Simulated scan of single mutants.
Amino acid sequence: MHTNQVLTETISIAASPGTVFDLVSDPRQLPRWAPGVARSVRPDGDDWVLSNGENEARITVRASREHGVVDLLSAQDRGQGVFTRVLPHGDGAEYQFTMFLPADAPDEAIAGQRAVVRGELDTVRALCEEHG
């Protein structure tokens, strides 16, 4: 059994689930809402290569509009990455973001990662709400 720590954050967005899905399922949009992960993005076959200016990472995007699933996974290990859901909520949407951290991750590192994720989700909300 894995003993990874789980970080899950959710944000309410006053925009349609389709608007949220369109933003978060398009890897080319990552520099707009997650610049620490990707300052630039380029397709590579069925995968995407993200560069943050220091490192590159290859991801696979697993998305289903019907189910509201948008997972951004390591192309080398599809059990690693972020698992997200776009859920309808009244006239808007909820965007749920889950990632797994090592069991031995220090509390300060988890708090730092949580702050980064909250900032990214705030940006997703702002981008989606400006486009309705």
Rank of each mutant, 00 (worst) to 15 (best):
2 H>N: 10
2 H>L: 15
5 Q>A: 08
5 Q>D: 07
8 T>L: 07
9 E>D: 07
9 E>I: 02
9 E>G: 04
11 I>K: 03
13 I>C: 03
14 A>R: 02
14 A>W: 00
16 S>D: 11
17 P>W: 11
19 T>H: 03
20 V>Y: 04
21 F>A: 04
22 D>Q: 09
25 S>D: 05
25 S>T: 01
25 S>A: 13
26 D>G: 00
27 P>H: 03
29 Q>E: 08
29 Q>K: 15
30 L>W: 02
30 L>S: 03
32 R>T: 06
33 W>Q: 01
38 A>R: 01
39 R>M: 03
40 S>K: 01
42 R>W: 09
42 R>V: 15
44 D>Q: 15
45 G>F: 04
45 G>V: 13
47 D>W: 03
49 V>Q: 12
53 G>F: 06
53 G>L: 05
55 N>Y: 12
55 N>D: 12
56 E>S: 14
58 R>T: 14
59 I>P: 00
60 T>D: 00
63 A>E: 09
64 S>V: 12
65 R>V: 04
66 E>A: 15
66 E>S: 12
66 E>C: 07
67 H>P: 02
68 G>K: 12
74 S>T: 09
76 Q>H: 08
76 Q>G: 06
81 G>L: 04
81 G>W: 05
83 F>V: 08
84 T>V: 06
88 P>S: 06
89 H>L: 08
91 D>M: 04
92 G>S: 09
93 A>T: 03
95 Y>Q: 04
95 Y>K: 00
96 Q>G: 05
99 M>P: 01
100 F>G: 06
102 P>S: 06
104 D>S: 12
106 P>Y: 02
107 D>E: 13
110 I>C: 09
113 Q>D: 07
113 Q>S: 08
115 A>E: 08
116 V>M: 10
118 R>A: 13
118 R>G: 02
118 R>H: 07
123 T>H: 00
125 R>Y: 04
129 E>I: 07
129 E>S: 07
130 E>K: 11
132 G>S: 15
132 G>R: 13
